[in-house]
């Protein structure tokens, strides 16, 4: 099994600790002039998202995690699984609910999504940073209110609910930042 030494660990390096895959966020090297050096590693658990810190003696290592990020095409959801396709090999794989947790509500089908694969199975699926979706349901805008900054909830065609300005109407297409869930703009016809 391949291992990664502390001096090879950089932001984004994937390691396996107690059976879970982690991504290195920061690697801080400390060394007393004539003494034992240590590396303090800030790492994110790729299954739970939890961030923690661990210290290793410099030169020690962790097992490398077989984790890669790949752009794939999201095809459809059959109610239980989300099917993704490798645009190069046309190979299809299925992601379960845990991997889709944050992305599902932004996806219609046909989008290109970033998929983190662990042992070739999808661990996390990321929606595109911004998506353009049609407003399916929202209350009619209030008369004359354009610039006061008021917002109202709007349900999008994928089922996601976002706060939109009062002037946005049903049937209009809007652009949303999926990382923050914030409305960005209306999209011209």
């Amino acid at each position: 099994m391949a291992s990664v030494s502390t001096n090879e660990m950089k932001a984004g390096t994937k390691v396996l600790i107690d059976g879970d895959p982690y991504s290195v966020i920061e690697n801080e090297y400390r060394k007393p002039g004539k003494g034992q050096a240590t590396n303090t590693l800030k790492i994110r658990n790729l299954k739970t998202g939890r961030v923690l810190e661990k210290t290793l003696k410099s030169g020690d290592s962790w097992e490398a995690a077989d984790v890669e990020d790949k752009d794939m095409q999201y095809l459809y959801n059959d109610g239980q699984f989300w099917t993704l396709m490798d645009p190069v090999s046309y190979e299809q794989i299925q992601a379960g609910e845990a991997a889709m947790a944050d992305a599902a509500k932004w996806l219609k089908g046909e989008e290109t999504v970033r998929v983190t694969l662990w042992n070739e199975a999808p661990l996390v699926v990321y929606a595109p940073n911004t998506v353009e979706l049609v407003v399916a349901e929202t209350d009619p805008g209030l008369r004359g209110d354009t610039a006061t900054g008021g917002t109202k909830p709007a349900k999008l065609e994928t089922g996601a609910v976002v706060r939109v300005p009062l002037f946005v109407n049903e049937g209009e297409k809007i652009k949303v930042d999926t990382r923050t869930g914030e409305y960005l703009s209306r999209v011209g016809k």
Binding site: P32, G35, Q36, K54, T55, L56, K57, D60
Partner: peptide, 19 residues
């Protein structure tokens, strides 16, 4: 934080802990 993966020699070495 205590470093991971320590061996018996580290555990018994005062200078390791002082460092």
């Amino acid at each position: 934080a205590e470093p991971e993966q320590l061996d018996a020699a580290d555990l018994a070495d005062r200078d390791f802990w002082l460092d």
